[in-house]
Design a protein around this nucleic acid. Structure first.
Length: 419
DNA sequence: TAACCTTTGAAGCTC
DNA sequence: GAGCTTCAAAGGTTA
């Protein structure tokens, strides 16, 4: 059971955020392991999913079996014989895997695709957040930590794509200003919370130390990394081999405005214009003018996005590594791998991301006290409810994008095994 | 052009 | 309170 101590005794009401669910999540994980074991003799309907899901399992297991000290594989003795939890993943994975191109499946089959990716710290984002010193202020901030040490084949700054919130603070090395602006990010968090100042506060001085871009040059995705060794069906980029991997714009420069009067206000990654694009200046909701027409006001009203949960933070950090390692580009396939690796993480490792997510939520709550998740309800248009209902009955992903069987829940095997 | 796919988790909604 | 629903990221795919 992970101890999700907030560190430093917490700051009050927000500190208990998410803790119960986190504990439940760990419990569920164990249950999933049990379910998996119980279902090991299940019918042929699982065969395909088992086969395809095992493509990743095998690779991860191979890493562990080969003695590769991969943090992505359980090393704490729990779930013996169960390299990872499968549980509810079966259906959705089967659904998508059936559509996987051959090359994609080959990529999943590649043992290297899922191994050797944790030779570096899994928690670079977390560490960066937890260790990045505030540029100035109270003096209560943690001591400066050395930047992530780069290793051979690692980008100069060793910063994978992180949660934008943390990318603000992810590197002490300034880089040239980007020429491009990300459209999905680039919002600001106007406030600085005292208890999290060590993570988020920035001053004009610190801004000068922030990287403007995050890039990792080698190894390039193309041509194929020999370690992944599967046929490449994706079009190669125009960049010359060996050229730096596409640069990632630092969100702090996406938009110029921020909190009025703040010398170096940072666009908050959780806020985007309601259009979903960045042609609008991000601004705090409080900055809206009363004179604007209602419709126009709504059109310009930025959408404050939900804080990222633990898995989302994990995905953001690890996605680049999976892409680089496996030369996969389809997010759906990557997410499958990441989902499995998430389950393969030790509880301690997961706990770090839960803690990070908890701080995300805490900060989000402090910055936007009036915000509610319902604010974004209905913002995403669905093509048709009928289609989703049909897909649910037809075995495809249901309307909420998760597990139809979970809702239908006939579960022919569970009652027998449970009883 | 925008939803879909795919993952897990958080939170809102409905009964 | 249980179960359902939506959204958060990402980028190729598809309608």
């Amino acid at each position: 059971m992970p101890q999700l101590d907030s560190g430093g005794g917490g700051t009050g009401a927000g500190d208990d955020l998410g803790a119960p669910d986190e504990l439940l999540a760990f419990q569920d994980e164990g249950e999933e392991q049990d379910d998996k074991n119980r279902d090991s003799a299940a019918g042929p309907e699982r065969d395909l999913a088992e086969l395809k899901s095992s493509l990743v399992n095998e690779s991860e297991g191979a890493a562990a079996g080969a003695g590769v000290p991969s943090p992505g594989v359980r090393v704490h003795g729990e779930a013996e014989g169960a390299p990872e939890a499968l549980g509810r993943e079966h259906t959705s994975q089967r659904l998508f895997s059936d559509k996987l191109p051959e090359s994609l499946e080959d990529g999943l089959k590649a043992p290297e695709c899922a191994s050797g990716m944790y030779k570096e710290t899994v928690y670079s984002a977390f560490n960066l957040l937890m260790h990045y010193p505030p540029a100035s202020g109270t003096g209560q901030h943690p001591q400066p930590q050395p930047p992530l040490h780069n290793k051979p084949g690692q980008p100069p700054h060793g910063v994978p794509q992180l949660s934008p919130l943390y990318e603000h603070f992810s590197s002490p090395h300034p880089t040239p200003a980007p020429a491009d602006i990300s459209q999905k990010q680039g919002v600001h968090r106007p406030l600085q919370t005292p208890d999290l100042s060590g993570f988020y506060s920035l001053t004009s001085g610190s801004m000068g130390q922030l990287p403007h871009t995050v890039s990792w040059p080698s190894p390039p995705l193309y041509p194929l990394s020999p370690s992944c060794g599967y046929r490449q069906h994706f079009p190669a980029p125009t960049a010359a081999p060996g050229a730096p991997y596409p640069r990632f714009t630092h969100p702090s420069l996406m938009l110029g405005s921020g909190v009025p009067g703040h010398p170096a206000a940072i666009p908050h990654p959780a806020i985007v214009p309601s259009s979903g694009k960045q042609e609008l200046q991000p601004y705090d909701r409080n900055l809206k003018t009363q004179a604007e027409p209602k419709a126009e006001k709504e059109a310009k009203k930025p959408i404050i996005k939900k804080p990222l949960n633990a898995f989302m933070l994990y995905m953001k950090e690890m996605r680049a590594k999976v892409i680089a390692e496996c030369t996969l580009k389809e997010s759906a396939a990557i997410n499958q791998i990441l989902g499995r690796r998430w389950h393969a993480l030790s509880r301690e490792e997961q706990a770090k991301y839960y803690e990070l997510a908890r701080k995300e939520r805490q900060l989000h709550m402090q910055l936007y006290p009036g915000w509610s998740a319902r604010d974004n309800y209905g913002k995403k248009k669905r093509r048709s409810r009928e289609k989703h209902q049909e897909s649910t009955t037809g075995g495809k992903r249901n309307a909420f994008g998760t597990y139809p069987e979970k809702a239908a829940a006939p579960a022919p095997f569970l009652p027998m095994t449970v009883l």
